[in-house]
Design a protein around this nucleic acid. Sequence first.
RNA 1: GGAGGGGUGGCAGAGCGGUUGAAUGCACCGGUCUUGAAAACCGGCGUACUCGCGAGGGUACCGAGGGUUCGAAUCCCUCCUCCUCCGCCA
Length: 427
Amino acid sequence: MITLNRIISDPDLIAKALTKRGLDENKVKEKLFSLIDLDKKRKETQIKSEELKSKVKLLSSEIGNLYKSGKADEANKLKTEVAESKTKMQSFDEENKKIKAQIEELLLTIPNIPHDSVPAGKNEEDNEIVKDWEKKLPDMGNDALPHWDLAKKYNIIDFELGAFITGSGFPLFRGKGSKLKRALINFFLDEAEKAGYEEVRPPLMVNEDSARGTGQLPDKEGQMYYMEKDNLYLIPTAEVPLTNMFRDKIVSVKDFPIKITGYTPCFRREAGSYGSDVKGLNRVHQFDKVEIVQISHPDKSYQLLDEMVQHVENLLKKLELPYRILRLCGGDLGFTSALTYDFEVYSAAQKKWLEVSSVSNFESFQANRLKLRFKDEDGKTRLAHTLNGSALALARIVAALLENNQTPEGILIPEVLKRYLNFEIIN
RNA sequence: GGAGGGGUGGCAGAGCGGUUGAAUGCACCGGUCUUGAAAACCGGCGUACUCGCGAGGGUACCGAGGGUUCGAAUCCCUCCUCCUCCGCCA
């Protein structure tokens, strides 16, 4: 959520910046000005109500004194005066409450302001490739098997059985497939630890406040699995619990940067997906991911974003997978993000680029909703910046590894994973 | 699941219907003293919103949300959470 103060101080600039997301400048302006207007009204009603409250307080203590000195008559007179003030006050309060709700509702509809470097554009086609794969892409020939066929051939992932137990999009990994997953998780966590992240194992379900804190609510409500009976949500990403560790907290500037990593399964309903996009591991309802999160000083967040991008890039290099890095254009940029880099890996049999990581700086957008603040050098309380990235999401990495590393003898295990496994080939 | 007891400032801990934003201690910051430090003494020490050029005001906040009352940290209701005991269970 953008802060109201920022809107008040420069609505034109914000409106202009949001056009990058494909929003209509005039419509946005209209919204911003009505927000400014509402805030003015909010202040007015608040002041009026507070004046009355102050009066009531004073009178009440007078009443107390009068009772003590036995002047009940005079006290009763004052009581009627208080009653009058209170009814007036209540109408101001009601109005104030209404206005506040309107402000909140409007604010929730305004996405984050894109960073200067974000290219304008409508959709994924306008994303900017900031680093392309320079070498030749692997050419497996036309006999290469897509990962779902390889999975069956070597009996390492059973999609049918997963569908039978739960439903489509819940694959069951078995044997060497299951071990490969375990190896990848350990590899990713170890790398994160080396980079200075503290490892946590968070809950996989979160309450409403947490879902709202990182912006899944109200925006992506339909994408989350929800347990009505307990009013809990299954996490769509570890970002939710990891970032919410700091909800409603004021940290010290000395704590920066705060670096947290965690492995969790992620659950997504993926309503509305279809076609070849959802084939095999390309899009599933449950997948594993190691997430990295940083809480940062506002002056440092872009430096840290670069560092996180490098971290992810390094993982892909070590796994020897062809990858490219995209800077998302305004139209493809997530609602809460100011700048996002996507990583895609080339899956050689499908001849497709698969998104495996998304690294974002949210600046103070999440922090504002989370009330995640820090005390700066002058003792002033300010909003922190939050960043996160996948490092990495497993399902599609597995898909690419299987496809790219297939040989007539079997699927070769990348060098870095061998120490995590008791086999070097899947056959 | 049942029964009982708690949640107060950075921490500990009083207050249990009337100038209480909240005693006291510790911690912290500034000062006096000291060659320096400690001790002692003096002073300061929460957050948010808001009015004011400023000095300085106002309002809210004692787990959260409602209610009773002229007045609530204090009474009532709901919820969250922690602890103890019983039951059940991986």
